[in-house]
């Protein structure tokens, strides 16, 4: 007898190795796929395009980076988008957070109707949201402009705020608040020193999500903007005649900025957790 110990057969082990590592290779391939357009955007932000169209490489230049506002329309549209984004984020975050508290912390009649009304805007295609709002604005005679964009953005952001904050509230351990009350904290103090700090990350995430949804929206805005030009509207208009490299610069900054923000937030969260 030479071999008693029964080891898994070679083919079995190869099988296992492939199965275990295939998924890793797959993950890497998927990440390359996800990042390909971002890399292209970043590379072409350093391009000096030959004509108007920035889609074939000419030569390296920092022009676009040092002179973002050369076409003043870019920066004007950015400013418009920032203002509308901030405004609708603030309002949607407040309205959505209040709804989440009602949904998680209270029993009341009409709960399923509320849930449905939160869910429906997310399940409605953007063209329909945009078209129906335009139908409303036309019939009541409200002139299109920053106000109508603000109304539309706030509307579709509320639902996303509710689902984000609600998840955070539901994930909280109710015993923490009970403990505070056992220690004779009144309702106000419990809310101020226990509930609010615990929900804050959820509210912050919801606000970030709202802002990026609003800042990035093209379809709904295209129905309700009138002559107002937001940043996506500018990009769409420019796409017809060739997008300037400055747009790539802004895309790259948005990407790096939000990635950095999320990673820092995660690191802070982890550090707090360890403490």
């Amino acid at each position: 007898m030479t071999k008693v110990v029964s080891r898994p057969s070679l083919s079995h082990r190869v099988n296992f190795w492939v199965r275990d590592h295939l998924i890793v290779f797959y993950g890497i391939a998927a990440l390359i796929y996800l990042f390909a357009p971002i890399v292209v955007v970043a590379i072409f932000s350093f391009n000096k395009p030959e004509g108007r169209s920035n889609s074939s490489w000419n030569y390296f230049s920092l022009d676009a980076w040092t002179n973002i506002c050369r076409d003043q329309n870019i920066c004007a549209s950015l400013q418009t988008s920032l203002q509308i984004g901030l405004g609708s984020t603030i309002l949607a975050t407040i309205l959505g957070t209040l709804i989440s508290f009602a949904l998680v912390r209270h029993r009341f009649h009409g709960r399923s109707t509320t849930n449905l009304l939160i869910f429906l805007p997310m399940a409605t295609p953007e063209v329909v949201l945009g078209a129906s709002l335009l139908a409303l604005f036309l019939s009541i005679g409200l002139p299109l402009g920053p106000i109508t964009i603000f109304i539309a953005h706030t509307m579709f952001c509320i639902s996303f705020v509710v689902v984000t904050v609600k998840a955070r509230l539901q994930g909280m351990d109710p015993r923490l608040e009970e403990a505070a009350q056992d220690l004779y904290a009144d309702e106000k103090a419990t809310f101020r020193y226990v509930t609010l700090p615990l929900v804050a990350p959820g509210i912050a995430a919801a606000a970030l999500l709202s802002f990026s949804l609003s800042f990035d929206d093209y379809i709904i805005t295209s129905f309700n903007s009138g002559t107002t030009v937001t940043f996506p509207m500018y990009v769409w208009g420019a796409a017809q005649r060739g997008i300037p490299a400055q747009v790539n610069v802004i895309g790259t900054i948005m990407f790096v900025g939000s990635l950095a923000m999320v990673l820092v937030a995660q690191a802070v969260g982890r550090a707090r957790h360890k403490r």
Binding site: V104, R107, T114, L117, L129, M155, E177, E187
Partner: peptide
Amino acid sequence: EISTAPKARGRKITPYILLFPGMAWLTVFF
């Protein structure tokens, strides 16, 4: 899932106050 958190029991009107502004916005603009 309904939370068992110890807040605002018995005040029937509170949830409606919390819901009103957001729900009104969604009703009017959706």
